[in-house]
Amino acid sequence: MKLKTLLIAFMMPALLWAQETTPQSPLQFDSYEWNFGNIDEADGIVTHTFQFVNISKEPVQIENIATSCGCVTAQYPTQPIEGGKYGEITVHLNPARTQGEVFREIEIFTKGRRSYDRLFVFADVNPIPMGLNELYPHQLAGTVKTNSLRCNFGYIAQGETMTRVVSLANVGDKPVNLSIHTTKGYGMSVQYPEVIDAQEIVSIRVTYKISTGKQHFGMTRDTLWIEADGVRSPEPIAVNALRIEKFSENENRPKPVMRIEPAYVEFGSKPPGKNYKKTITIGNTGNSDLVFHDVEACQGTSITLKNGQKIKPGKELKVTVSITNSSSENETTIGSINLTTNDPTRPFRELRLQIDTK
């Protein structure tokens, strides 16, 4: 797409813009964040355009833009931007089913992933007034509903305890006897009332107490099966947490930094029903050993990396990953490999693999 000529007021010196981004990026933006302020969910999508200049002498092509939420989409130039030329990225935020303060990230990758930029948008969303049925859209059992079928804890350090609350609502006109069954596989406990009155909202307290030891790293996967008046829900509420090591609060201590290239492995279009392999590079750009506490290959994937394996500071490791293609034609298979390490900046990383059938 061809870019329109920008206003003269935008053509400020690129050096002023460079203060807000990494020096490796040839794309310098007029701003790196935008606050939409107070908006109403009922008004729908809001839009902002970020403008940029290519301060390098070489053409730069934006290859891909990734957003932290499906509620954010972005339009960007698909043709290379010549050195010294200007461009724009238009970001759309859909506030549907959100409320309160919203923070979203937009990641920009140039061709060959030679550079990387991040933009941020904010908003304070006023939700559409709704009744219990709209606020709690997921049917569980009988007249008991919930506002979410997932309870994500995020990071929990070994030896620590954390509690999250799951909300249930009885949208009926009679009290309901409640019971909850769990998998109890990772030190999870649940507290809940035995009765929910008509039109009442109750809180289910879900608590993780993470044990210490080599076997207590990585992602947990638990479930809550809700039973109302003896009727069990057809699907559970999924509960998960990311178990990591307890890091020192000393910011000056030596620490590893993991780098994965590429972090998203595309195998392209291949004949169906076969296993395909690729080699990736995992490096440690920090100043202490990088330790892999937990390596989990999911969904028909594999990786030649083991629990407890280490990478010395400044070193790299060539690793083979594989994925099994679907046996059906014209399908996309996506797999993931989860890595839990002692990198304090990002101790859990998900490596994504994608392959298409011809």
Rank of each mutant, 00 (worst) to 15 (best):
M162T: 14
G142D: 07
V144L: 13
V171E: 13
I128M: 08
H138I: 14
L135T: 12
G142L: 05
S179N: 12
L149T: 14
I180H: 02
E134G: 03
L149P: 01
K184A: 13
K145C: 04
F153R: 03
Q158I: 07
K145T: 10
K184P: 01
G154F: 09
Y136V: 00
C151V: 02
I180P: 00
N133I: 14
I128R: 12
A157G: 11
A157V: 08
D124S: 13
V165Y: 02
G154A: 05
H181L: 15
N126A: 12
T161L: 13
D173S: 13
Y136A: 00
K145W: 11
A157S: 11
G131M: 15
V144Q: 07
A157Y: 07
G142P: 04
P129C: 06
L149W: 04
T161Q: 15
Y155C: 03
V125M: 02
T182V: 10
Q139T: 12
N147E: 08
L168H: 06
N133P: 02
A169S: 08
N147F: 00
V176M: 12
H181A: 13
S179H: 11
K174F: 14
A157W: 05
V125C: 02
N170V: 09
K174Q: 12
I180L: 05
Q158N: 07
N152L: 02
V171Q: 10
T183K: 10
L178E: 06
E134L: 03
K174A: 15
N177T: 13
T146M: 00
V165L: 06
V144D: 08
Q158V: 05
F153V: 06
L168C: 10
S148Y: 02
S148E: 07
N177S: 10
V125F: 01
T161N: 14
V171R: 09
F153W: 03
K145E: 09
